[in-house]
Simulated assay, not measured.
Amino acid sequence: MSEAVQIASIKDDGAIPVYVARPAAAPKGAIIVIPEIFGVNPGIRQKCDKWAANGYLAVAPDIFWRFAAGVELDPDIEAQLNQAFGYFQQYDPADGVYDIESTIRWIRQDAGAIKVGCAGYCLGGRLAYMAAARTDVDASVGYYGVMIDTMLDEAHRIANPLMLHIACEDQFVSAQAQAAVHAGLDGHPRVTLYDYPGMPHGFAAEMGDRRHAAEAELADARTEAFLAEHLA
C-alpha cells in the first residue's frame, strides 16, 4: 500500500511531503529513500515500492519542498535535466539533514521501535553521508554521492554503518574526488566502499537511459544485504 502524506519539519518551517510505501505485514525495518535532483519521480517511487515488497516501510521525502514542492523531473529530457541542475544550485543540503531527521522521528512515532536506514542517490547520496555523520540513523547507503570529498572532515562523526557505491566514470565526481574519498574513508571501521569500473553517474536508476542493469542489480544486492544485516 502506498500513500502521500505530510510530516512536520523539526525546523518548524512547514510540512514535508513524503511518499510512503507500506509492506503487507509488520515492517522488519524502515528505509528512507533520498531522491536525486529529480524529485520523488516514478523511479524513486519504484524504489520505495520494491523495499515495501521486501517487507520494509519505505519513505521518500520531497527534498525540494521548500521551493519546488511536488516537482517530478525526467533526467532523459534535457530541459528537465537543466531544471534539476538549477534546483541543485538553489538547495541547502543542511535542510536535507533536517528533513531526514524529521523523517526518522516520524517513522519511529508512526511505526514504533524499528530501526531506520537510508539509501540515497546523487544529491541523496551526499545526504546519506551527511545523515551518517549528523543523525542517529541506524545505517546509511549512498549511491554516487556528489561532493562527499568536500566533507571528509565529518568522517569521525560516523557512528553507525555507512556504505558508498562509487561510479568510477562519474561525470560529476572526478577521479581526484573519488581518490580523496578512498583516502579519507578506506580505513574507517564503519564505512564500506564499492567501486564500479566503467560506470557513469546514475547507473542504478530504476528506469531510463542511465540504467546499467547488471551493475545496478549488483549494487542493489549489496545494499539489501547491508541494510538487512544492520536493521535486523
Rank of each mutant, 00 (worst) to 15 (best):
I166K: 05
A216D: 02
D170M: 09
E78Y: 04
R134A: 13
R190H: 13
Y91S: 06
F172Y: 12
F85K: 12
C118M: 06
A177S: 13
Y196F: 14
A213T: 15
I34E: 00
P197D: 05
I107N: 01
D49N: 14
C48P: 06
D153Y: 12
D62S: 07
K115Q: 12
G125T: 10
T192L: 12
F226T: 07
L193V: 10
S102M: 12
C168H: 11
I158D: 01
F85W: 07
N82S: 09
D49T: 10
D220Y: 15
D186Q: 10
D195Q: 10
A60T: 03
H230Y: 14
E217M: 12
A183V: 09
N160M: 11
A183S: 14
R126V: 02
F172R: 01
A30C: 05
D209Y: 02
A52C: 04
G187V: 08
A204L: 02
Q171W: 06
K115G: 07
Q80F: 06
I10F: 06
T192D: 05
E36L: 03
L57G: 01
G187Y: 03
G142M: 00
P75C: 09
I44M: 06
P161L: 03
W51Q: 08
D153I: 09
L81T: 06
W51G: 01
I34N: 00
E217S: 08
G208T: 07
F172D: 00
E224Y: 14
I7H: 02
H188F: 11
L152D: 00
D170L: 12
I63M: 15
D149M: 01
E154R: 07
E72R: 13
